[in-house]
């Protein structure tokens, strides 16, 4: 798994609440049986419908950090949304909040998600829309994010941070609990399950 430590990059400001996973990767692109090939379709419907959509603007479309608003990743559970974002080249998404399933899916793929207060996000989106050259720096180990000369701390789940920094896999961790799982099954798995 890819490790994550620090990142400095211009940002892609997506000034919307409730960015859903149908927007991120429309269903017609979910037919692949592999985990690859989704990057070129990221936000494809919005890119087609709105010529001025942020990813259609050369000044913004090379950023590795996506900045958006509340409840990012809501809707369908498709992990393809995370794969599409990553395969496009985005390594971190900074928002005021995320949907639960998207949050879990991102953690499984080392896509870093950072939640910050709504006011900070709104201010940063405005600044970034006014000046595409502004760069953001994220230091996961120190849990610090810097933009526009400000540095903020962010909360990050201890277990997921441990996994991200060390590139660890949840499945190995689960399989290491084999004895406990077997003991659980012997005690609990009965006819009414």
């Amino acid at each position: 798994m890819q490790k994550f430590t620090t990142l400095t990059s211009p940002v892609i400001p997506l000034n919307l609440d409730n960015v859903d996973t149908d927007m991120i990767i429309p269903a017609q692109h979910l037919k692949s049986v592999s985990k690859l090939g989704f990057g070129e379709h990221v936000f494809s419907a919005l890119r087609k419908m709105y010529p001025d959509f942020i990813l259609n603007q050369p000044a913004y479309n090379t950023g590795k950090i996506l900045l958006s608003k509340a409840n990012f990743g809501c809707g369908s559970s498709r992990e393809h949304a995370v794969w599409a974002i990553q395969q496009y080249g985005i390594q971190a998404v900074v928002c005021s909040s995320f949907s639960d399933i998207f949050f879990n899916n991102a953690a499984k793929n080392c896509l870093l998600l950072i939640s910050l207060p709504e006011e900070t996000i709104a201010k940063w989106i405005d600044a970034s829309l006014a000046d595409s050259s502004l760069a953001m720096t994220i230091d996961l180990e120190a849990q610090k994010i810097s933009f526009m000369g400000e540095t903020h701390s962010f909360k990050y789940d201890t277990f997921r941070k441990h996994c991200l920094i060390n590139g660890l896999d949840d499945l190995d961790y689960l399989l290491s609990q084999e004895k406990d799982i077997t003991a659980y099954e012997q005690k609990h798995c009965n006819i009414s399950r």
Partner: peptide, 21 residues
């Protein structure tokens, strides 16, 4: 009953468990 991504399907197929807060 809840929806999960493909990674958690993989985890549950392998271990009958997933990691959840």
């Amino acid at each position: 009953a809840f929806g999960v991504g493909t990674s958690e399907i993989t985890h549950a197929m392998a271990s009958s468990c997933i990691l959840q807060d």
